[in-house]
Structures are given as C-alpha cells and as structure tokens.
C-alpha cells in the first residue's frame, strides 16, 4: 500500500512542478515542457489508480490503461504540433 501512495505522491508532485513551470513561464518552450510534465503526472495518476490489490486476484483496470495510451498519443501529437509552431515562430523572428 505504501508504494501506491508513493506513486500517487509522485504524480501529484509532477502535476505541481508542471503547474509551477507553466505559471512562471515565460519562455514558450518552457511552457510546452511544463505542460508535458503535467501530462506525465496525470498519466501516472491514472496508471496508479488502475492498480488493484494483488490478493483479490483482480487484474489492473484495463480501461484506464487504454485511456492513458490514448492520452499519450494525443499528448505526443499536441507537443509535436506546439514545437512545430514554436519552430516557425523562432525562424521567423530571426
């Protein structure tokens, strides 16, 4: 059970770090990264929540796993899109 809370705490911590980074800014790249850290925290939270105690013989919640996978795909494409935009913005600024 301890490890459950450890994971949970880490997830919360990640969301917090990401939120702080997003808030502080101001560089756009930093904000994009911060969003990714928040995303990682949320996905970790979801994975942790999918945990079921082994003794009861239940498998972990596969719906949450599926959601995390979907979320990862969305997050990766969103990050790629944001970076591409940032790249265009920076080349133009030069």
């Amino acid at each position: 059970m301890l490890s459950f809370y450890l994971y949970l705490g880490t997830a919360v911590l990640l969301v917090g770090i990401g939120g702080l980074g997003l808030w502080r800014g101001p560089e756009l790249l930093r904000r994009i990264l911060a969003l990714n850290v928040i995303g990682a925290g949320i996905f970790m939270l979801m994975v942790t929540l999918a945990y079921r105690p082994v003794m009861q013989g239940e498998p972990a919640d596969s719906v949450l796993h599926a959601l995390v996978l979907t979320g990862l795909v969305v997050a990766v494409s969103a990050t790629a899109f944001a970076l591409a935009l940032l790249g265009r913005l920076l080349t133009r600024a030069d």
Binding site: L22, I32, L35, I38, G39, I42, V74, A78, A82
Partner: peptide
C-alpha cells in the same frame, strides 16, 4: 494552443 492544452489537461 498552450491554453487549450492546459485546459484539456
């Protein structure tokens, strides 16, 4: 985009 992503999260 950044606002939108944050909102989604």
């Amino acid at each position: 985009l950044l606002f939108s992503l944050f909102a989604s999260l």
